[in-house]
């Protein structure tokens, strides 16, 4: 270890990729997918020959810290998510405020409208308090498939009673989108005021070009018009599946009916449950659809959130955002979330 005399802030280029991967392996977690998969780095952070990762280097060019960001849209002032914020222990000892200085550098260097991301570590809460960002615990709403009598993915409390499923609006239907060019049929523009605003390019890149998971993107039709998009993923563990709703586009007006359709899809596919980890949606919509909000404080009823690797435990996810008067919604797949943590 050497004493550092100066720190330089900048943005990573493709030449920094090997060092970034080594950084992840050494300082984040040994064997982490971003220590092994160049493909995932390029998918998540590559932009026109540079990487959307702020870096701090010492006078010898060694990486001391990283702070990544992911744009939600291609506007001149995009909404962005933060990702991969870390400073090495050695650098932290020498420059205790390096992490916040690096974040400050990125936030001031990248023009943007709004910053929001899920996946914030609980230990970072005091930081966000002081930098005046809003802190939220995301909800996990779920519906258990009553046809699965011996579940393996969930632990069901003996006294658990699921709310009745409301009657679905039979004028709504789900249509699986298999070709990303069909996304052009959905008008994203009216939802620019729902933060963060995710555009067509984001949907294509996030769900149709993702290198590791197969997502199912559905258009919700009413009277032949597309009124919503819903992104889902079937997660597998213990030889069973669960339908995970990971993103939602459009107004919430028909959310109860859409949730009913998703519950029905889970029943048909013999999924153990369907769930949606999110923030900012009206809880009443979920209750109307017979879904339940998971109580993270108890262990009698467990609905897992982590499948890669599988963890039978209730784990709340936290998200942070700039303060805003606009509607703010955060979904499970936003930012750098909903990714495998290890490569199989």
């Amino acid at each position: 270890m050497h004493a550092v005399s100066t720190v330089k802030f900048g943005f990573a280029t493709l030449d920094d990729l090997p060092a970034l991967m080594a950084f992840m392996d050494e300082h984040w977690r040994k064997g982490h997918i971003l220590a092994k998969s160049e493909r995932l780095w390029l998918h998540e952070f590559s932009q026109d020959g540079f990487l959307s990762v702020g870096i701090a280097k010492d006078n010898l060019g060694q990486l001391l810290g990283i702070f990544g960001y992911i744009p939600y849209n291609q506007n001149a002032l995009p909404d962005i998510a933060g990702s991969l914020w870390m400073v090495t222990n050695a650098a932290q000892q020498q420059f205790p405020m390096l992490g916040i200085q690096l974040r400050d550098f990125v936030i001031k260097s990248v023009p943007h409208r709004f910053f929001a991301a899920p996946g914030a570590g609980l230990q970072t809460r005091p930081i966000y308090q002081v930098i005046r960002m809003n802190w939220h615990r995301m909800q996990q709403y779920f519906w258990l498939n009553p046809e699965i009598t011996k579940p393996k993915l969930v632990k069901v409390a003996a006294n658990f009673t699921q709310l009745p499923m409301a009657l679905a609006d039979n004028t709504l239907s789900l249509q699986r989108i298999t070709d990303h060019r069909q996304i052009a049929d959905f008008d994203f523009a009216p939802f620019n005021c729902i933060l963060p605003f995710k555009d067509a390019r984001y949907v294509r890149h996030r769900f149709f070009e993702y290198p590791y998971f197969d997502y199912e993107v559905y258009a919700v039709s009413k009277n032949a018009a597309w009124i919503n998009l819903v992104a889902c993923r079937r997660a597998e563990a213990e030889g069973r599946t669960a339908l995970r709703v990971v993103d939602f586009y459009g107004l919430e007006t028909y959310l109860p009916e859409i949730l009913n359709l998703l519950s029905e899809s889970a029943r048909k596919h013999q999924d153990e449950f369907v769930d949606f980890v999110c923030h900012g949606f009206d809880a009443q919509h979920f209750l109307k659809a017979g879904w339940t909000a998971l109580d993270f404080e108890q262990e009698a009823l467990i609905v897992p959130n982590f499948f890669e690797p599988f963890l039978l435990k209730n784990v709340p996810v936290y998200c942070v955002s700039d303060a805003t008067d606009f509607p703010y919604r955060q979904c499970k797949a936003d930012g750098d979330q909903d990714r495998p943590n290890i490569m199989s």
Binding site: P96, I100, Q101, P126, I127, Q129, V130
Partner: peptide
């Protein structure tokens, strides 16, 4: 004080003196 402690301290200072501090200046 460690870095998290510094954030807690600033939070307490803002509460005690009923003010909003410019964090960038404090952290540099």
């Amino acid at each position: 004080v460690d870095s998290l402690g510094m954030f807690r301290l600033i939070f307490e200072l803002e509460g005690e003196f009923n003010c909003t501090l410019d964090q960038s200046a404090l952290f540099c």
